[in-house]
Design a protein around this nucleic acid. Structure first.
Lengths: 191, 191
DNA sequence: CGCGTTTCTTGAACTAGTTCAAGAGGTGGC
DNA sequence: GCCACCTCTTGAACTAGTTCAAGAAACGCG
């Protein structure tokens, strides 16, 4: 069942029925329980993951053992550790399911071959990465231009449902502050 | 003279002589004076820029008129505003030459056509974007895991020459603090 | 349902980094 | 070679956000 991926691809490029079928041979569905890991610090990342439903996150641990969430990926997002994937180097990150999640796994190994057979996919991934680059620029701009409280307000108004869905401490570190501070912001906003 | 670009491309994919010549028709060299702009806030970004020599940066202005540097691009880096480029939307950013800079300009208009004729370039740009994604993850990790002073120390030890090259206030905002604070860090380190 | 773990709250003491302002240095352009 | 303008420094007062600790609530699993 990779219909959601095909639908996403169709937004960017068109594949023939034969090409879509080819893709099927390279993509493996996988279900994850809440809190299950796809990658741990020190392991080499070998695949790229497409979220069909649920939610993944990238995080790392500070020396003091505090988790910091770098990215969330919900429906229709790709997630991986590009540095580790590229260099076949041990990762500095963890990839984890925030809630029960259904992913499609595209292994790096076969990817070259697949792109050789279906060049439109090379284009699709370029466009996906380009969108990711835009999102990263936007993210850093927000981190720099708004106060912690303003960042939370904006995030909460853009993604009200998502704020309910993830534990507050994951969201706090994603927004760049402590869980205690987020709790205090909420208390302030409540009155 | 696009030899430096061809050399960079060769690190990722191989082009035939004919393909390299084709590329030449789509890439226009351009020289920039110190402080010259390639893009201003509100304008639509229509091209991607490859730095042959010199240095570009992306920055934005806060409501108070303070500049915040988001990215630097030195030799062999591509720079653009992907959000504006993609959506043909007004940019939130400025692209500026930090010092006298020589760039190659690849206009968005012809790009599709070029990639159709030279599919290896589609691949090249995917790989460049992938490297950019890795750098962005690393950047956010640094912002979250180190104190301001530690960020400066690390940056200065990694790129000692670069620290001399750019005005301190650009570097301060890139590292996520004020120029005054950077000045104080330096004073502390001096003794 | 009920127990154990995970998550959230609250308060007090603290500190990293900001803000504002004024002066001192540099340096590039003519 | 000089002036104007950029850029950097310094200090004092301040504040946004942290840290630590302890209790309260919520949740998910059996």
């Amino acid at each position: 069942m990779l219909a959601p991926l095909l639908a996403h691809i169709a937004r960017y490029v068109s594949l023939t029925a034969a090409e879509a079928e080819l893709l099927e041979a390279y993509v493996v569905p996988h279900t994850l329980e809440r809190r299950a890991h796809l990658l741990r610090e020190g392991e080499v990342c070998t695949a790229t993951y497409f979220v069909v439903s649920g939610c993944l996150r990238t995080y790392f641990l500070t020396e003091k053992g505090v988790e910091h969430t770098l990215q969330f990926a919900i429906e229709n997002w790709w997630l991986t550790d590009y540095a580790s994937l590229d260099a076949h180097a041990p990762s500095a990150f963890f990839l984890q399911a925030v809630e029960p999640t259904w992913v499609l796994v595209l292994e790096q190994r076969g990817q070259e071959e697949l792109f050789g057979r279906v060049p439109q996919l090379e284009r699709y991934f370029r466009l996906v990465l380009q969108r990711g680059a835009a999102a990263a620029q936007h993210r850093v701009k927000l981190l720099y231009s708004l106060s912690g409280e303003a960042r939370y307000r904006q995030f909460a108004s853009l993604f009200p449902a998502f704020v309910q869905r993830v534990p507050q401490y994951m969201l706090a570190s994603y927004l760049g502050f402590t869980p205690e501070f987020l709790s205090k912001i909420r208390a302030r906003m409540g009155e």
